[in-house]
Design a protein around this nucleic acid. Structure first.
Lengths: 382, 382
DNA sequence: CTGTTAGCGCTTTCAC
DNA sequence: GTGAAAGCGCTAACAG
């Protein structure tokens, strides 16, 4: 009763075991093994996703034709195309990205590695990046390195084994070794570094003018009459720390104040250390009358600590942060800070990555966006 | 010169076009089309990821044996296994998750849909969930609905077409129609709702005892001597809003205070509306002497507004929030709030989802975690 | 214990 | 304009 689906003969077909739950047949005439294709209307398995084969069977055409119709290929009969498109809509056909990805060796997924996303900066960046990426049809996988080098290495490995098409990365404050990123580059998978970049890697970079931002911040403090300005700086492994520190140093020198190395402290950007070193500075025999902190969370720690010690802000201590985190308007007095266009950084980084992905050419452009001084109560006396 | 890789004859092989950049051959004897398998050492294409076929060719064994060795299958010769494992490590073999996913119809990816991740709650939840998920080998895709119903529907669609294996969802404040989630349930893809659940859907839920938390908060205000307590409530579409409001109402009634509907305002949880309604409450001819806000961001808005109007906290206005957002310790006075075990919620939700995925049985358990009253300066007079 | 083969869903020659 | 068939990398059923 069974007809061979290849040679269409009836008398030579015999059962040949079960495969994937379906009866398998062997045509003794043409030696062809096959199973009976099931019409889509009959398969009531809720897990069964409609495939182009279902559409093809239903319409009695080949899957290649269905594929062509769906992909908007040119040489296909207009009627056929409509027929396929209609049925696809009716059966809620969704192309299987895994099959497509396997064939094209792409996942349409971008990996993002950030040190954390508890604070304002990285979530805001991710929101910006995601808006551009999802518009371009990319999915996003986010990993946190928790400021831990080993975790960062593990994140790269995990995202590589998920076969992401590209990376957006901001490194940990500990990252001194870049071998894990070099592996990625060797496989020619595009990476865009933002905020915390790898100066020694030849990749596109998206940063702000950290030097100038810091310079403005410190100059502002000097103009307000502060004379002994400390700097809670980031680790020297980060380019951003170096740039901001240089801005700090140059502003001090420009205004003929003396640089006191006792007032410059590098730390690992954890809140715990921020607290410890803020305390150290404020307990100095000759304490600073202002502190420029590398970022807003640090500045907030400074303010909380100063308040707990009864030090008046801004009268006895001026404070300036960096990033314009929304908390800076919640604390009292409000925090003077350097704003950076975070959402823009995200969007720009994403666009650069997409371009690299599409053109298959990676240019090592360095993009530097502008910062702005936002003066609030924490640094203005009277 | 070319030997047929099927029948191993030499004299019948002829060229038969180019396929995927490789010379294709046809054996006229056995009618077999083939290309010459390339030894891995020769393919210096950096994009070429090592496959089990490369390993098999290199070792002169079949790819099934390689697969078995890699997967730790039992019936395989120990020497063979070692040989494969060694080569795999040496060549940095990474299994292709797309191929595996295509075969098993799984992506090992979980979709998370949250209203936003600017504030503390959702990032903290995601961190908890991700820690459990990645330990179990799952990747995570995060979507923000931005409190917008249409975006939420689009997110579900996008994640479905990415073929995620399961969902963790907290709905928008606008979501009244659940058809998009019903589609997911029809395909039997497990979903776990947390925080903002869908009461009408039969899925596992992870929440806190919102009722009791709110009750504690309001009772605390009453004990502090506040008598005219307002409630900035969430939209009634959210179960959580209803529960917290009921806790508020019951606490008021238990202590024989009068319920004034003028003091109960539902809003959509945006900061903008929070500000507007807080202003409305504080401008009332007979204003409240305390406000219980549905969450900390709202309470913060209340405090900022009250301060700008010169209303003293806690003397003239007591404020209590919900969630124990870190900002609640930054604002002055510090905000009394109800803490919830957010990281735990994330971990628990993830575990439930994983269990559903592995056992293929979805139990509609409802998990309720405990809240705790954290008394700070915003509600304690003197 | 190992090899052969089919098939997951899709695109892309090649052939007509 | 359409179909047949190969192949992306992997697993599993079957046959030795």
């Amino acid at each position: 009763m069974i007809k061979c689906i290849k040679c269409h003969q009836v008398d030579y077909v015999q059962k040949a075991g079960i495969i994937r739950g379906k009866q398998r047949y062997l045509c003794k005439s043409c030696q062809y093994h096959f199973t009976i294709p099931e019409p889509i209307s009959k398969s009531r398995n809720p897990h069964h996703q409609v495939t182009i084969i279902d559409l093809a069977n239903e319409l009695g055409i080949s899957k290649s034709t269905v594929s062509r119709a769906l992909r908007g290929h040119s040489d296909i009969h207009e009627g056929t195309r409509q027929m396929v498109l209609d049925l696809a809509k009716q059966l809620e056909y969704e192309p299987n990205p895994l099959a497509h990805g396997l064939l094209k060796n792409r996942t349409n997924t971008i990996g993002i590695i950030v040190p954390e996303f508890r604070h304002y900066f990285f979530p805001a960046f991710i929101i910006g990046a995601q808006s551009v990426l999802s518009k371009a049809g990319y999915n996003v996988m986010i990993c946190q390195s928790d400021e831990c080098y080993e975790t960062e290495v593990a994140n790269v490995k995990a995202l590589m084994s998920s076969r992401v098409d590209g990376f957006l990365v901001s490194v940990t404050s500990q990252t001194n070794n870049f071998d894990h990123f070099k592996t990625v580059m060797r496989k020619e998978i595009p990476m865009v570094f933002f905020n915390r970049i790898c100066p020694e890697l030849e990749t596109p970079q998206v940063v702000v003018d950290d030097y100038h931002g810091a310079f403005m911040a410190v100059e502002h403090l000097i103009e307000q009459g502060y004379k002994r300005i400390a700097h809670l700086a980031g680790p020297s492994s980060l380019q951003l720390s170096k740039n901001r520190k240089q801005g700090y140093l140059d502003a001090i020198q420009k205004h003929n104040l003396t640089i006191d190395n006792e007032l410059i402290i590098d730390f690992d950007l954890t809140e715990e250390k921020a607290r410890i070193y803020a305390n150290h500075l404020l307990s100095l025999p000759n304490p600073p009358d202002a502190i420029f902190a590398i970022n807003d969370p640090t500045a907030i720690e400074v303010m909380i600590l100063a308040k707990s010690k009864g030090i008046k802000i801004p009268e006895e201590l001026g404070v300036v942060g960096f990033s314009n985190d929304p908390v800076s308007t919640i604390i009292e007095p409000q925090l003077t800070t350097i704003s950076q266009p975070i959402g823009e950084m995200g969007k720009l980084s994403a666009s650069i990555l997409i371009k690299a992905l599409e053109e298959k050419i990676i240019r090592n452009e360095r993009h530097q966006l502008l910062t702005e001084l936002i003066v609030r109560g924490s640094s203005v006396r009277e």
